[in-house]
Structures are given as structure tokens and as C-alpha cells.
Design a protein around this nucleic acid. Structure first.
Length: 214
DNA sequence: TCCCAGGCAGGGC
DNA sequence: GCCCTGCATGGG
């Protein structure tokens, strides 16, 4: 089963998801850190709050105190960690590059290494930032993607292996990358929840497992 | 009530 | 290398 066929089927079934919903690249980055293990609705409210106070920019988040940031994102889980993380990223960005333009003018692999060296930015967050903020052909692997690959019968579910699998089998098209990742998420949220609804899943014919009764 | 959400870091082994 | 735990709130 080729990923592109999965993609086309999901696109036909769910339609375009239009990820990442953000006005700026910096907003994508902040969102990518805040969304970790959280639901998007909660993050959306926090983003709007930061925006309405004029704080959703590197300079404001770099100079704000941790207490201030914590207070603004307090209804998210791990809010103390996340406050430190967005403050830390902002300070790093301004201190070393001065602007996102400069940071993102580097080769993809160098940006990726640097993102991964920062506290709170792991593989999925780094790759989401590369794809949705920096427009690089990098395919993020999240928990839903791993579940999908498991269902498709892929044995080696290690992050870099799966990333390689998608990146070597997909057309080099940013729109495909962006939509596909979002569609996999939509699929997971809809059918792979606590009680998997495999029998109504649009990919049940592609499933590598013989469907077990739900 | 309980489970989990678009992870990550740090420790033990 | 893998596995476990803490982080910590709100929604379903």
C-alpha cells in the first residue's frame, strides 16, 4: 500500500483540513509547542489571548517574565514547562538570529538540528515547525501516524524509519505533506480513539490486521 | 468519575 | 538502545 493512495482516499473522505491554522510563522511555532499533549481548542483560546494582548511575537515572549507567561497559558497542561519553552525559544531566536527569516534561511538539516537542541522541541515538534512554519518537505510523525502505520502492518515503528517511509514515498509537494499529516490526525481523532471504530474506518480495506471485533 | 489530548526530558537499566 | 515517570489542565 503506497502512502499516496492512503492520502487520496483520506482527502476524498474528509476533504481538505487547511493546516496549520495560523496568521504567522511564529504563531505556528508557539502553537506547535503549546499543542503537545493538549487539545487544539484549548490552545486556540490561549493563542487568541496572547494575540489580543499583542504578545504573540518573539520580542514580547522573550522579554516577558515566566510568571506573566504562565498566567496567560495557565489552563493548558504542563503550563510551567511550556511557558519556559516558548520564552526560551524566543530568546534563542532573537539572541542568535534576530529574526525568523534569518533562522529559516539555513539548510533544512541545520534548522532541524538546532530545533532539536532546544528544550521542549522534540522530533515531532521540530518537524511540524519545519513543515508548517518553514515550508520544508519534512513529514512529522505523531501518535496517530504511528497508529496508522501499525494498522497498515508496518513492523518498525521508530520515528526516523517512519519519517523516511513517508518522505521517500510521497511526491515532493508541500501541499500534500501538509494536508496528509492533518488528514491522518483527523482519521485518528475520528476512528482511533479509546474505543477504535475500525469497522467504519475509511481505511479498513487497507488494514494489515484482520479486523478484530471491536 | 476516569481517561486522555497533534510530546518531551531525564533517569534507570 | 528501551521503558518508565513527571509534567499538570480541561474536555468528553
Amino acid at each position: 500500500m503506497n502512502p499516496i493512495q492512503i492520502y487520496q482516499k483520506l482527502l476524498k473522505y474528509f476533504g481538505k483540513q487547511h493546516w496549520w491554522p495560523a496568521e504567522t510563522r511564529f504563531e505556528v511555532i508557539v502553537g506547535a509547542i503549546l499543542i503537545q499533549q493538549t487539545n487544539w481548542r484549548s490552545v486556540e483560546r490561549v493563542i487568541e489571548n496572547l494575540k489580543s494582548r499583542g504578545l504573540l511575537n518573539p520580542h514580547s515572549l522573550a522579554t516577558a517574565s515566566l510568571n506573566q507567561i504562565e498566567a496567560l497559558i495557565r489552563h493548558l497542561n504542563f503550563f510551567r514547562q511550556k511557558a519556559r519553552r516558548i520564552n526560551n525559544f524566543s530568546r534563542y531566536l532573537l539572541g542568535k538570529y534576530g529574526s525568523l527569516d534569518k533562522f529559516f534561511s539555513k539548510p533544512t538539516e541545520e534548522i532541524r538540528e538546532e530545533l532539536l537542541s532546544l528544550k521542549g522541541i522534540g522530533p515531532e515538534t521540530a518537524d511540524s515547525i519545519l513543515l508548517y512554519a518553514a515550508d520544508r518537505l519534512t513529514f512529522p510523525i505523531d501518535a496517530y501516524t504511528i497508529r496508522l502505520c501499525e494498522c497498515l502492518g508496518i513492523k518498525d515503528l521508530k520515528y526516523e524509519r517512519l519519517r523516511g517511509f513517508f518522505e521517500s514515498n510521497l511526491p515532493k509537494d508541500l501541499e500534500v505533506y501538509k494536508e496528509f499529516h492533518a488528514l491522518i490526525d483527523k482519521l485518528g481523532k475520528t476512528y482511533c480513539k479509546v474505543k477504535p471504530q475500525c469497522t467504519s474506518c475509511p481505511l479498513m480495506n487497507e488494514c494489515g490486521f484482520k479486523l478484530q471485533s471491536n
